[in-house]
């Protein structure tokens, strides 16, 4: 496994600052910053990678890529 604790990838150049991702985040891991009105991970370790933020972003600015592998533990 390359990275065991990935976070959603946010492309701020596409972000319109609508706040939908922060409102949808069930863990409050993602919030809008007061000064720049852009999403930021205020509690990164609370993020469960549920991909809700990706689902609601109207600008397609959030990506939660998945790797798909076979189980190797037995």
């Amino acid at each position: 496994m390359v990275n065991d604790f990935a976070l959603p990838i946010i492309d701020l150049t596409l972000c319109s600052g609508c706040g939908a991702c922060a409102a949808a985040c069930p863990e409050h891991a993602l919030m809008m910053t007061v000064d720049s009105q852009q999403p930021a991970f205020v509690e990164p370790y609370a993020c469960t990678y549920c991909t809700e933020c990706e689902a609601v972003c109207p600008e397609n600015a959030i990506h939660c890529p998945l790797t798909i592998t076979w189980n190797t533990e037995d």
Binding site: M1, N3, D4, F5, A6, T48, Y49, C64, P65, L66, T67, I68, T69, W70, N71
Partner: peptide, 8 residues
């Protein structure tokens, strides 16, 4: 599902 890993 293990975070970003989808394990079949």
């Amino acid at each position: 599902r293990e975070r970003q890993n989808l394990v079949l």
